[in-house]
Amino acid sequence: MEFLGLFNYWVVIFLMMVGFYALISRGNLVKKVVGLNLFQTSVIIFYVSTGKIVGGTAPILIGDDHGVAEGAAEVLYSNPLPHVLMLTAIVVGVATMAMALALVVRIKETYGTVEDDEIQAQVLADEQREGARP
């Protein structure tokens, strides 16, 4: 049952591919951004799931201020590090998203559209104008 045992990875791969597909195939810039977000989210899930151990608890120190309680060493806890890393990654992801959406807004203001092919047509027109200038 190795296949099912690794189901978290399959979820990650599925999400990643959905995001990647949207990123490549959609002409709408907002949809591209959504695709990118899915893509990044899959990475976050990947990290979080690697830190999880079946039956593990939160990594909180058991005992009082003066010493560690008996048996604390045997407590099974999930690895906190990947989770902490993902806090950073989520912040980064949010920043990227904000940046991307801000750009889309500016593009919409300037070109009047968020469709990739229509923007491309205007870009080509710009190029031609520039090339034809004496």
């Binding site: 991307a100 300037t110 070109y111 923007i119």
Partner: peptide, 8 residues
């Protein structure tokens, strides 16, 4: 204005 597209 192409700067926006290239940045995106």
């Amino acid at each position: 204005r192409r700067a926006l597209v290239s940045a995106f």
